[in-house]
Simulated assay, not measured.
Amino acid sequence: MTNTRLSRALCKTVGDVIQGIGGHATLDATSGAPGDPPELAHHSKWKEWLFRAGQDPNTDSLQVLGNVLEEYMDTKPVDPADIERWKDGKARVEAVLAEDGLRYYRHGRVLPVGRVAETDEFSQVAAKMVPAMPGTVDEVVQIVIQGLRRAMHPLTYRRKGADTMHFANEYDVQDLLHALLRPWVVDVRAEEYTPSYAGKSTRMDFFLPAHDLVIETKCVRDRAHAKAVGDELVIDISHYAAHPGCKKLWCVIYDPEHCITNPEGLKDLEGNHNKDGREVKVKVFTVNK
């Protein structure tokens, strides 16, 4: 375990910025800071506790700092009146981190500038100062899919006077995905029909014939629809397995309102599926707002 000393200026700024967030008891319990919380006001407590974490050789002080910052840095206020103050607070934190040679990454990661976040594959790409060139089309498509939410953000919150875009249905998501894929994949076929299965054909959202890949997108409309998504995917898998060019099926579930209560349950559909001697390998991605 590597401990990093946290400057007094950094600890004070973080304490000042996060003093307005709720759930203090939960934050105390989940931060990973050493010992009992100091008997001080909220902002003074975190100034002292973070500084103490930076002095403790048995504590991962950057992980503690990330845990403390995560809720504030990653959660945009619902009330428009609070947004500017939130942005100012984020800017203060980012500036004081930079002064100490540190940088905050989403999901509560604080790292020295230039260091790669050693978590999942996509996070590693996101955390590098210079993005790595994907080695395969599969890697490109996976990065595009996992980056959909980030791609939506500048289009949803555009500069003054520009028309904003709202990703309210699967057609909106399909158009964005199509636009992001086209610079990388020469032949992206939209809405191509599958062979008939059980007397019915269906249209594939995207077919990449050179890569034996089909991409199916769904937008969760409400909680009732969320309960049916798994059944819809089962039917889709049977349809797409009948297509001779489909060896890989990647299902992209856009769930902007977090209606799916157990998105990990959809992962049960991943893996190899066989239909009439044909095999299709399924992957499922859930994208939230």
Rank of each mutant, 00 (worst) to 15 (best):
residue 59 T to G: 10
residue 85 R to F: 04
residue 51 F to L: 15
residue 95 A to D: 08
residue 56 D to V: 11
residue 73 M to K: 02
residue 88 D to L: 13
residue 95 A to E: 08
residue 92 R to N: 06
residue 65 L to I: 05
residue 93 V to K: 04
residue 76 K to P: 00
residue 64 V to R: 04
residue 79 D to I: 06
residue 76 K to Y: 00
residue 85 R to D: 12
residue 56 D to E: 09
residue 72 Y to C: 14
residue 95 A to L: 07
residue 55 Q to I: 05
residue 85 R to E: 13
residue 78 V to N: 03
residue 50 L to Q: 09
residue 78 V to I: 08
residue 88 D to R: 13
residue 63 Q to M: 10
residue 89 G to E: 02
residue 83 I to S: 04
residue 82 D to F: 03
residue 52 R to I: 10
residue 57 P to S: 10
residue 68 V to G: 08
residue 54 G to H: 01
residue 91 A to W: 00
residue 74 D to P: 05
residue 68 V to W: 00
residue 89 G to L: 02
residue 85 R to C: 11
residue 64 V to Y: 00
residue 67 N to L: 07
residue 48 E to W: 01
residue 55 Q to T: 10
residue 64 V to N: 04
residue 60 D to F: 01
residue 55 Q to N: 11
residue 77 P to V: 09
residue 90 K to Y: 00
residue 54 G to K: 03
residue 87 K to D: 08
residue 53 A to E: 03
residue 71 E to R: 13
residue 80 P to E: 09
residue 70 E to S: 13
residue 92 R to G: 03
residue 73 M to Q: 02
residue 83 I to D: 01
residue 94 E to L: 14
residue 78 V to E: 05
residue 52 R to V: 11
residue 73 M to V: 04
residue 77 P to Q: 07
residue 79 D to K: 10
residue 91 A to R: 05
residue 80 P to V: 14
residue 67 N to I: 07
residue 86 W to P: 04
residue 63 Q to V: 13
residue 64 V to I: 05
residue 68 V to F: 01
residue 89 G to D: 02
residue 48 E to Q: 14
residue 69 L to T: 11
residue 67 N to F: 01
residue 53 A to L: 07
residue 50 L to S: 11
residue 69 L to Y: 01
residue 49 W to H: 10
residue 59 T to M: 08
residue 76 K to V: 11
residue 51 F to Q: 15
residue 84 E to H: 08
residue 50 L to H: 04
residue 63 Q to W: 00
residue 94 E to C: 13
residue 83 I to G: 03
residue 50 L to P: 03
residue 77 P to I: 10
residue 90 K to W: 00
residue 86 W to H: 11
residue 56 D to L: 09
residue 57 P to E: 06
residue 51 F to N: 14
residue 80 P to S: 14
residue 58 N to H: 08
residue 53 A to G: 08
residue 61 S to K: 03
residue 70 E to G: 06
residue 74 D to A: 10
residue 72 Y to N: 12
residue 94 E to H: 11
residue 94 E to W: 02
residue 77 P to E: 07
residue 69 L to C: 14
residue 80 P to Y: 07
residue 95 A to T: 13
residue 65 L to D: 02
residue 82 D to V: 05
residue 73 M to L: 03
residue 57 P to K: 10
residue 54 G to E: 03
residue 82 D to P: 01
residue 72 Y to T: 13
residue 58 N to L: 13
residue 95 A to I: 04
residue 58 N to S: 14
residue 54 G to V: 06
residue 84 E to G: 09
residue 51 F to R: 15
residue 83 I to V: 15
residue 58 N to Y: 00
residue 50 L to I: 11
residue 84 E to P: 00
residue 85 R to W: 01
residue 62 L to I: 08
residue 71 E to Y: 09
residue 76 K to Q: 09
residue 83 I to K: 06
residue 69 L to M: 15
residue 68 V to S: 08
residue 93 V to G: 06
residue 90 K to I: 11
residue 54 G to F: 01
residue 48 E to M: 12
residue 73 M to W: 00
residue 52 R to F: 04
residue 81 A to Y: 00
residue 71 E to D: 10
residue 84 E to V: 15
residue 49 W to M: 14
residue 61 S to H: 01
residue 93 V to R: 03
residue 86 W to K: 05
residue 52 R to D: 09
residue 65 L to R: 04
residue 86 W to V: 07
residue 79 D to H: 05
residue 52 R to A: 15
residue 63 Q to A: 15
residue 54 G to I: 04
residue 82 D to W: 01
residue 53 A to R: 05
residue 57 P to A: 11
residue 59 T to F: 02
residue 89 G to M: 02
residue 86 W to I: 08
residue 73 M to I: 04
residue 55 Q to F: 01
